[in-house]
Amino acid sequence: METFITIIAGVLFTIGTYLILSKGLVRIILGLSLFTHGVHMLLMAVNGLKKGGAPLLGEGTDVYTDPLPQALILTSIVISFALTAFSLVLGYRTYVELGTDDLEQLKGDPNE
């Protein structure tokens, strides 16, 4: 299971990177989303899966899964939400203001 999840994460990384490296703004934002998902999956897999119950003391099991990566991922989810929202708006404003989303055309004047 861990290997499988790691490979899924790897695929998400590869495709995320490919999209990030493209020229269109929308693709870059989508690529970032994929990359984040990949990181979350990897963090879960690295920690070991199905090792115990949910980290709720009310459940009354003996062994719990490690709560620390979960807390970290929760933080990451919210941050990446903020990041996506911001870059999305940035991208859309850029497009509205400048009429293009091609990053090659967006690069500045070399003498600037």
Binding site: A54, L56, L57, G58, L74, V78
Partner: peptide, 8 residues
């Protein structure tokens, strides 16, 4: 505080 959930 005790079950799944929270501020986020």
């Amino acid at each position: 505080h005790h079950n799944p959930g929270g501020g986020f």
